[in-house]
Amino acid sequence: MKENIRALILVMLWDIRKLGRYKFFLVMRFTWFLVQVLIFGLLVAAMVSIRGPGGLLDYYKFYVIGAYTAVLFSISIMKGHDVAEELEDGLIDYQLSLPIERRILALGRALGGGLASFTYSAPMLFVTVIVLKVQNLIALSALVIISLLLAISISGLAVSIALILRSGDRLDILMGVSDSLLVRLSTIFYPVTALAAVAIYYYVAKVNPVSHAADMLRYVAEPGEFSGYVVADPLIMVSLIAGFAVASTVAAIVLLDRKIEGGYGR
């Protein structure tokens, strides 16, 4: 047990070790996020007025959390790309040969990927917290936990898909599609009450885990403002997010443990 925890931490370090190496990527993301928050967000909020059960919605705050969720989502999806690249470079072969239990290896990669993605998006979370003036410690920790769960879910999912597709190119296409679908067909930028007008859109958004993550973040940050605009009851949202995280991690574990062997890069 102790040995496994040690191995788990070492595997997680594999992804975390890489953090400092992509500073440029981080700076670009952060700049783009600031542009969204300081320019687009304000512009859009000035044009949009949404009235819901709780009166007039503060769309600016709604938008900022949406933008943060979208960034977290796409950074986490990059993990799939990382793993596809590692498959092609034979690094997964290397890891498969190490004296680590396969289940621990997979769990470590999923958790490490999630943690690394979350760390990358932490500066964006910081900006979000400032813009929304979140001061409550419980709310802050809840924001961190939900962000982490989302990051783990998405990177676990991306890693699983990478392991199935075995190719960086095919993965990029699929991820591009799922990025736009999962983000567009969610409540990231449109409140669920507004989506109700378009049936398909509405139902997809309602089951889309990304909607639940975005709305849960909003609910935690400002329950008073956003409780009328969430896809589901907070308890349901939390269960769905946690369930998604567990499911995608288990998928990655099963794939690495049972199905996967090396040599994809050849």
Binding site: K18, D89, L91, D93, S97, P99, E101, R102
Partner: peptide, 19 residues
Amino acid sequence: DAVRKLVGIAFQEPKALWV
């Protein structure tokens, strides 16, 4: 898992992240 505790391999193509 038991096998991996006993074996180590140096690959024909060196394995490392470029970074």
